[in-house]
Nucleic acid binder design. Structure first.
Length: 193
DNA sequence: CCCTGATTCGC
DNA sequence: GCGAATCAGG
């Protein structure tokens, strides 16, 4: 596949709409998201904060130095393996990872952490309720960095498990549980009238 | 693990 | 110019 005018047009259009490179690639077909990204860059597009805006090392600051642009050859050859020095870690896996608390959760009451006096969105609760049906019901040992660590059931009984659904970006819970775990900080929306 | 874009460099 | 491989971040 080559970048025909038409395809480039589609690319521009979709990129402008904020579509992700992978989506564009899928739409175009015959190209990977890398190809799309590469093309985007070559087209001069680019610059689209998508999860990783980050700080651009803007070293383009040119005060008033029309001459003598230093060009220190950077590092054109990054070693394929970044494990230059890898200390023989002795399993520092001692961190809790789970915000479990010693609170007593009544059996049958999926009232996890931080219910407090917070009113969680009915939708969020419904979502949780729904997601609980699909939960993997994994054990503590099965918890990984990408499994939802939301406890369900009564820890004092066998009827207890962790959600285990896939989490997303770094969050400890799945989407549904994140919704009730982290309040938008303003759940104090007293409905006046 | 999934995802995202950014960059490099052989082709 | 192209894009796979790689990097870097969520």
């Amino acid at each position: 596949m080559s970048w025909t005018d038409e395809r480039v047009e589609t690319l521009k259009k979709m990129w402008g709409e904020g579509q992700s490179a992978s989506q564009i690639a899928k739409e175009l077909g015959g190209v990977t998201r890398n190809a799309v990204i590469g093309k985007v860059h070559r087209l001069g597009l680019s610059n689209r904060s998508a999860g990783a805006p980050a700080a651009k090392p803007e070293a383009k600051a040119k005060p008033a130095t029309p001459a003598a642009p230093p060009k220190p050859e950077a590092k054109p050859r990054p070693s394929p393996k970044t494990e230059a020095a890898r200390p023989v870690s002795t399993e520092p896996e001692t961190r809790p990872a789970v915000p479990l608390r010693k609170q007593i959760i009544p059996a049958g009451q999926p009232l996890p952490p931080q219910p407090s006096a917070n009113e969680i969105s009915p939708e969020a609760l419904a979502k949780v309720n729904e997601v609980e049906k699909k939960s993997k019901k994994i054990s503590l040992m099965e918890l990984t960095e990408r499994t939802c660590k939301w406890p369900v059931g009564d820890p004092a009984t066998e009827d207890f498990w962790f959600c285990g659904l896939p989490v997303q970006a770094g969050k400890p819970y799945c989407e549904a549980h994140v919704g009730v775990a982290f309040q938008p900080m303003s759940s104090r929306r007293d409905r006046k009238r």
